[in-house]
């Protein structure tokens, strides 16, 4: 059976059926619609004002690749300028290849690229060093817990380096849906109360962050990358299989099979959750050590690094944060282990 004609231009043969609406579209029409929807999200949510210098968090993966490409297409209409900021977490055999993909993209699209490395920012701690340090703690190594917190901080530093006014990340609807499921399973009321929007407006001196792809499902992101022939890196991180997110991801996949709209339904739910005022996190302040946005006296990045430096990596994870000398300057700064090993 030949493919039906495209439902929009009626000229070309349809090349795909949109997961969202079931509409049969040709490649160019789908890409145009996708871009228009992202434009609509940015405009209707007033995420990026004209004149903004936007730092795109680029990992080399599909989401950030698609985001960078779409924003580059839309940049003249939005009146924004783009900067790619990539973070080198120091994960051997994984990040180097991904960074190579980012470099290729930057060169092809002629966008300025800045790479910030964990090793430079966090006193020599790379993710590989963190993984080694946490390996002996018996429980799961919680690599993603460290990496997520530190990456957020690194991206902020990188964006400041290039004098950006806004940060955008490539989180899509699936990511948000997983997150809301995870937050319920973990009982994280603070995040449930805060989440749901398209980003944060930038309080307490932090740069405004937003997620322009939040209303686009992962399938559509992949389809867009396919039809635009984007070159991206699609390996999974070596530490990812240990993450709790895997449970939520598997669940979401099977839910989507039962009802295709479930991803956006979850996003809608997240947008409308109402939590008791007592469950709302206190207004954020500034970290006493680094000055970054923090809900307690130490920001989570500093707290985690503090634990690592003292050889007790789980100190800031889970309940209590007992034993953290919050507020006090670093008592004994130990040299990071392992970082010296590869030198000879």
């Amino acid at each position: 059976m030949p493919a039906p004609p495209c439902a929009v231009c009626h000229a070309a043969r349809a090349a795909l059926r949109r997961p969202r609406s079931g509409q049969a579209l040709c490649g160019p029409c789908f890409c145009a619609a996708f871009e228009a929807e992202v434009l609509h999200t940015v405009l209707a949510g007033s995420l990026l004002p004209p004149g903004a210098v936007v730092a795109v968090g680029a990992s080399g993966g599909k989401d950030s690749t698609v985001l960078a490409h779409v924003l580059r297409e839309l940049a003249p209409r939005l009146g924004i300028s783009l900067q790619l900021v990539a973070v080198d977490e120091g994960i051997g055999g994984y990040r180097d290849a991904a960074l190579a993909a980012v470099r290729r993209q930057a060169a092809r699209w002629e966008l300025p690229l800045t790479v910030v490395a964990y090793a430079d920012l966090f006193g020599g701690w790379t993710m590989d060093a963190v993984a080694r340090s946490t390996a002996g703690s018996g429980r799961s190594r919680a690599c993603c817990t460290f990496c997520g917190v530190l990456r957020r901080r690194a991206l902020e530093e990188g964006a400041r380096l290039v004098r950006a006014t806004h940060i955008v990340t490539g989180h899509n609807a699936d990511d948000m849906a997983e997150t809301v499921l995870m937050n319920f399973l973990r009982g994280d009321t603070g995040r449930l109360a805060r989440g749901g929007g398209l980003g944060s407006p930038g309080e307490g001196g932090a740069l405004p962050r937003c997620r322009p792809l939040q209303l686009a499902s992962q399938k559509e992101v992949v389809l867009y990358a396919h039809f635009r022939r984007l070159d991206y890196f699609s390996e999974e991180c070596v530490y990812a299989p240990e993450a709790f997110r895997a449970h939520a991801r598997d669940l979401l996949k099977s839910l989507e099979a039962a009802r295709p709209s479930v991803v956006l339904d979850l996003v809608h739910s997240a947008e409308h959750l109402a939590l008791a005022p007592t469950a709302q996190p206190p207004p954020p302040g500034a970290c006493t050590r680094c000055g970054a946005l923090a809900s307690r006296s130490l920001c989570q990045a500093c707290a985690l690094l503090d634990g690592l430096d003292r050889g007790r990596p789980r100190l800031a994870i889970g309940k209590g944060r007992r034993g953290l000398d919050e507020g006090a300057p670093r008592a004994r700064a130990q040299p990071p282990p392992a970082a010296v090993l590869p030198d000879f």
């Binding site: 499921l181 479930v262 979850l266 739910s269 947008e271």
Partner: peptide, 8 residues
Amino acid sequence: NLALGRGA
């Protein structure tokens, strides 16, 4: 119900 979009 969360997955059914009844978050509100």
